[in-house]
Every structure is written in structure tokens, then in C-alpha cells.
Simulated assay, not measured.
Amino acid sequence: MATILLVEDNPANMKLAAFVLAQGGHDVLCATSADEALVLVRERQPALVLMDVQLPGMDGLTATRQLKDDPSTRAIPVIALTAFAMRGDAERIRAAGCDGYIAKPIRYQQLLGEVARALENNNENNPVGRS
């Protein structure tokens, strides 16, 4: 289906999300920090990035802003993964450039649904698409 970069510093969350994505037919790249994610996105150009908001060092929203400021990665959709699902968080996440967000704990149906929606929207906006 698609290559997806999963950025998550919690090993249990990483394992669960990577398993669900792989079972959904996706190729999964994994990063445990924003710095590692930025390198992988630029090198591999995944179809989608699932970005944990709270990461050691640079946070996920700062990394997302950098991706959206870079013409070579701007079109790649980013979905935030966050334990913060309070009032105002959705606006803050979208203001950073994220195309959506999934609240933790991750529910597999919601994860696959959001991934499918983001990939479909990206393919509609970029007819050549990404793999």
C-alpha cells in the first residue's frame, strides 16, 4: 500500500502501531526521535508521517513545522500522535502543520481509518502520488 514513517519514542506504542500498520499492508519506517525522523523523511520520502508530539529533544510539532517549511517534504501529510486531547490541542496541532491527529491510546480501527483518509486526501491533491 504505502510507506509510512512512524515516529514514536515509547517502545510499546511503536510496536503496536507498527504491527497494526504492517497488518494493514503498509511498509513501516520507524524513528524514535525528531532528528532521526527528519533525516528519514528527506531520504525516503514516505507517503505519510505519524508523528508523536512529545519526543526527547526536539518535539514532534517543531519537527512538523520544519517538514512543512521544506519544499521537498511540504506535501507529505503528517498526523500527530498525542496523549494530549484537551480543548485547544487540535488547533495547536493543526497550526504546527499537522494534517490531523490521533489521541493515545491508539485504537487500531481509528489508526487505519486516519491513515487511509490522509493517504486518499494526499493522492487527490497530488495525482502522481507517493508510494
Results as ranks from 00 to 15, higher is better:
M1I: 10
M1A: 15
T3S: 14
I4G: 02
L5P: 03
E8P: 11
E8A: 10
E8D: 11
N10P: 05
P11F: 13
A12P: 00
A12T: 14
A12S: 14
N13M: 01
M14V: 12
K15W: 12
K15L: 15
A17T: 12
F19V: 00
V20H: 04
V20W: 14
L21H: 05
L21M: 06
A22L: 06
A22C: 07
G25W: 03
H26D: 02
V28P: 04
C30W: 05
T32F: 03
D35L: 07
E36M: 04
L38C: 09
L38V: 10
V39E: 14
V41W: 03
Q45N: 08
P46D: 01
P46R: 04
A47L: 04
V49A: 08
L50V: 07
D52V: 07
D52I: 01
Q54R: 15
Q54S: 15
P56S: 14
G57A: 11
M58T: 15
G60T: 08
T62H: 06
T62D: 12
A63P: 12
A63S: 13
T64Q: 03
R65V: 03
K68C: 12
K68P: 08
K68A: 10
D69W: 09
D70A: 09
D70M: 05
D70G: 06
T73S: 15
T73W: 03
R74Q: 15
A75F: 00
A75E: 13
P77G: 05
V78L: 09
I79N: 10
A80V: 05
A80H: 02
A80I: 06
M86C: 04
M86A: 10
M86F: 15
R87S: 13
G88A: 05
A90C: 11
R92F: 06
R92T: 15
A95N: 13
G97S: 08
G100V: 09
Y101D: 01
I102E: 08
I102C: 09
I102M: 13
I102Q: 06
I102N: 01
I102A: 08
A103W: 01
A103N: 00
K104V: 10
K104M: 14
R107W: 03
Q110W: 02
L112K: 06
V115C: 06
A116R: 12
R117A: 14
A118F: 11
A118K: 11
L119K: 09
L119D: 00
E120H: 07
E120M: 07
G129Q: 11
